[in-house]
Design a protein around this nucleic acid. Sequence first.
DNA 1: CGCTAGTTTCACAAATTTGTGAAGTTAAGG
DNA 2: CCTTAACTTCACAAATTTGTGAAACTAGCG
Lengths: 165, 165
Amino acid sequence: MSEPSEAGRDPEAVSKFVESFAAQLVEAGMQRMAARVFAALLASDSGAMTSVELGEQLQISPAAVSGAVRYLAQQHMVSREREPGSRRERYRVHSNQWYEAVTNRDAVLKRWEYALREGVDGLGPETPAGRRLAETLAFFEFLDGELIKMMDRWRILREERFGAG
Amino acid sequence: MSEPSEAGRDPEAVSKFVESFAAQLVEAGMQRMAARVFAALLASDSGAMTSVELGEQLQISPAAVSGAVRYLAQQHMVSREREPGSRRERYRVHSNQWYEAVTNRDAVLKRWEYALREGVDGLGPETPAGRRLAETLAFFEFLDGELIKMMDRWRILREERFGAG
DNA sequence: CGCTAGTTTCACAAATTTGTGAAGTTAAGG
DNA sequence: CCTTAACTTCACAAATTTGTGAAACTAGCG
């Protein structure tokens, strides 16, 4: 058992984690390359990697890295940073940031709510179907509020357990 | 403005809702036909439809209905009932049932947690990466518990506002 | 027991998605 | 300014997914 120093801890173990966690993310609907890139970042010691590092570790083309990163950044699951005075970019998971992303399906929920509101209107709030939609809408509004409070609680708990982020 | 009695309220409005709500579900990762079938059920007065009704309203083949319904049933978003003494089946949304399905990503969360636990083990709980995974794991465990409590609160609220389900 | 309404399964054509190599952009460094 | 490292965009081949018609089940009903 060699004890690799720092970077690349145990490539075997890293790869095993990356692939199995990514597989779960894919099953939950994430694009494959995005999932793999994300998992790789999560499993890196510094929480950040360059495009080249990602490409090498995952055996994918620069184009694939680019696409994956664009997606992850749009979802606010990863942020890009520029090493000052270099053309090289670095992609990072802020541990925090991504919990928020998972729960802040805010944008998603809002669109669902919008569609439901339109539906209630169109069908009439007094029709049985309209009433069903209204109740569903109420549920999502409830969800919205609860998720926010829940994340507040998490931030506190996290600070206690793991120290400031 | 004709006032269609009961069934088929305003086909125009129904269709508009079905398509726009379904589109949102698709964007969130659901299969297209499943999303359309589900939306149609939500927007029906009785909350239940037969295979033929679904096929006609959505202009899709029996095969498509069958596939969609199988998926929805697996996800516990819809239940199938047999009209006694008939070969005809009827698919229904229990308003309740599906809120649970949305939040009971239980199975999903559990699998994520499993993958993370393996990762912590493989990388070593004392490595920086291991610590990151451990924290992520803690977050999901927290989430798990909170979702359960949240649904308890919803059931109470719902009963107050809409009466028993 | 067969007949047949109702549903599911299957094979396939069409549409969509995915990842790549290569060309195109951008900006740091001389 | 020119060079060139680094990233992005583009066109396309490969793989996957989707929905269909048709065949195959299944179970009421006579």
